[in-house]
């Protein structure tokens, strides 16, 4: 007891210090990241004349729902169509893209074949090519087959995600034991059945991570639709809001709509993260240990 006594307070002091430090850093980060969203929320709740004349970080008269009503009514609800488009482009591409990445990564992890490392390295180098650089070549390709300004011109290029393949391979190596696959084979399960019934279950946290990454990447891929699309009814919400924002000089009342639109357009992302972050954290952990 007397030996341990002097050590005890020292230990607490240390952890208290580091804990306070950590909390402080986190608090600063939280403020840093949340202030723009707070600004957006407050701005979206104001009427247009109060928007310029009142404190940008605090509420004036609460007009959020009236503003949302205006936005939905503007030009026959084109905003809602953009949101729907975004969900289709993003949700669809992320779902199919995750499946493709999972199958590809799984195959690279669990099967031995000639050129495996070569394929993996080629895919990996794809991670380094930014989507921005691909937009113009893609436009020229789609022009050749007369398919620009269509749903597919944005959807098809969004399906693949080399980073997803990379993650899937790492996770599959770490979380799907070869013995288990061997056992499945002995029990007479086909390879495809094993993949869907056994391996994907084990890879679920990884797949959710891939899905989220892919979802965000497609949601934020702004240049591709900008270059491909001319038909307003095909726009994703990012491009639609951007178009409005470039016209603010000409039609100043659009500014309010852009702000409320921006607030609404981030809600799907926020919802996706809140629902899926639990899995994501697990997935990141699993990858880190191995």
């Amino acid at each position: 007891m007397s030996v341990l006594a002097p050590e005890k307070p020292k230990k607490i002091q240390e952890s208290l210090l580091s804990r306070t430090g950590a909390m402080l850093i986190m608090a600063v980060c939280t403020v840093y990241f949340l202030t723009p969203i707070w600004w957006l929320f407050v701005g979206a709740s104001k009427s247009s004349d109060q928007f310029t004349s009142t404190n940008p970080l605090w509420f004036a008269d609460f007009n959020l729902f009236a503003n949302i009503g205006d936005l939905f009514a503007y030009r026959d609800g084109v905003f809602l169509r953009w949101m729907l488009n975004s969900v289709l482009y993003t949700g669809g591409a992320a779902l199919i893209g995750t499946l493709l990445a999972a199958m590809c990564g799984y195959a690279l992890a669990k099967y031995r074949f000639h050129g495996r490392e070569l394929i993996f390295n080629v895919v990996l180098s794809g991670v380094l090519v930014p989507a921005t650089a691909l937009a113009l070549p893609l436009f020229l390709l789609f022009s050749k087959v007369d398919a620009t300004n269509t749903f597919w011109s944005v959807f098809l290029p969004s399906l693949v995600n080399p980073f997803g393949v990379y993650l899937a391979r790492i996770y599959a190596t770490a979380s799907v034991p070869d013995d288990l696959l061997e056992a499945a084979r002995i029990d007479g399960s086909g390879e495809i059945r094993t993949f869907f019934k056994v391996s994907t279950r084990l890879m679920t946290p990884a797949l959710i991570t891939i899905f989220l990454f892919h979802f965000v990447a497609v949601w934020n891929n702004f240049l591709l639709p900008l270059i491909m699309l001319g038909d307003e009814r095909l726009f994703p919400v990012t491009l639609g809001l951007y178009s409005w924002n470039t016209q603010v000089n000409q039609i100043p009342e659009l500014r309010g709509l852009v702000i409320i639109g921006a607030l609404l357009s981030i809600t799907p992302l926020v919802v996706a993260f809140l629902f899926l972050q639990r899995f994501w954290r697990n997935g990141l952990g699993a990858g880190a240990v191995k």
Binding site: L226, I227, L229, G230, D231, E232, L239, S243, T246, Q247
Partner: peptide, 9 residues
């Protein structure tokens, strides 16, 4: 067909 203003893209 439409899009952002001229210099916007």
């Amino acid at each position: 067909q439409t899009g952002p203003n001229g210099n916007g893209g």
